[in-house]
């Protein structure tokens, strides 16, 4: 428990950093969804999905994730007290 009183609202910069932290937490879920997309293509039995096609997709998605991650990570605050305190926004 923290004894100091936490502020309920934050100024613009800290607010933005919080939202980037939220985004950073969502990123793996987004990535997982992206990587699981090719599974949907093989649902239809009559259609043949090519390895090369899936490979291109996965690698493009991969590069995209890396770029997003690099961007988000650079925006994250240097020292944030708690990853899991959504109470003070």
């Amino acid at each position: 428990m923290s004894w100091e009183k936490k502020t309920v609202f934050l100024e613009r910069r800290a607010y933005r950093q919080r939202r980037f932290a939220d985004g950073a937490r969502m990123l793996p879920l987004f990535g997982a969804a992206l990587f699981f997309i090719p599974l949907l293509w093989s649902l239809a039995d009559d259609k043949v999905t090519l390895t090369s096609y899936v490979m291109s997709f996965v690698f493009v998605a991969w590069v995209g994730l890396i770029i997003i991650s690099a961007f988000v990570s650079s925006k994250l605050p240097k020292d944030m007290p708690d990853a899991a305190s959504p109470k003070d926004e």
Binding site: A21, A24, R25, P28, G31, A32, F35, I66, A83
Partner: peptide, 10 residues
């Protein structure tokens, strides 16, 4: 591991 790394904040 890629997913774990990009979710490092968590």
């Amino acid at each position: 591991p890629t997913l774990v790394m990009i979710g490092w904040w968590w």
